[in-house]
């Protein structure tokens, strides 16, 4: 940020160039996790919200994304995780991508999240969201979200379909919600 301010002064007249820089910075942030936590063969990328955002806003793909917000300390979240894990094996011919976004406290990722994933032998992609100013990003996930977890977004860019759920899921309920999203091969 300090560099930015200096550049801002230097190029105060070159607004376009600054804008380009801003975009490049955002783009670069989106590609690079803030931190990668690893232990015992388990590796989890940690993002701030801007870094996570591309996962929630993929474009031009017929994949259905199932994004579940959870945490190891959230009992109903942990209880429903197997239902999300099961999706990938239950629909091998469909393009379904399950991403589990952990909201575990940042200082507890190494102590709680990594050992949990090791124990559960999680097969789904797990990322960590480290952005304590939740008020700045909850509405960007969905304005309907009060902030309680578990919460889930299901979307498919090519079908232009997106739904948000602040609730727990049984496997059957997930299957039922997925019906309109699944493009048969």
């Amino acid at each position: 940020m300090a560099n930015f301010r200096r550049m801002n002064l230097q190029y105060s007249k070159s607004y376009g160039f600054l804008l380009l820089l801003v975009f490049l910075t955002i783009y670069a942030n989106a590609q690079t996790p803030s931190k990668v936590y690893s232990a015992d063969g388990i590796s989890v990328k940690s993002y701030n919200f801007e870094g996570l955002r591309p996962i929630l806003e993929r474009k031009a793909t017929d994949t259905t994304y199932v994004i579940n917000f959870w945490a190891t300390w959230c009992a109903p979240c942990v209880a429903e995780l197997p239902n999300f894990e099961k999706l990938t094996t239950a629909y091998p011919d469909s393009k379904i991508k399950v991403i589990l976004v952990s909201l575990d406290f940042t200082k507890q990722v190494e102590k709680n999240l990594l050992p949990f994933l090791k124990k559960k032998q999680s097969k789904s992609e797990v990322v960590h969201l480290s952005d304590p100013d939740a008020n700045s990003w909850i509405d960007k996930v969905d304005p309907e979200w009060s902030g309680a977890i578990p919460a889930t977004v299901i979307y498919n860019p090519s079908l232009n379909l997106r739904k948000f759920y602040e609730q727990s899921f049984t496997f059957e309920a997930l299957q039922s919600e997925l019906k309109p999203f699944i493009t048969l091969p």
Binding site: W73, A134, N135, I138, G147, A148
Partner: peptide
């Protein structure tokens, strides 16, 4: 009004 993450009410 503001929002925050929290535990769902049981």
């Amino acid at each position: 009004e503001t929002k925050a993450i929290g535990c769902s009410i049981k």
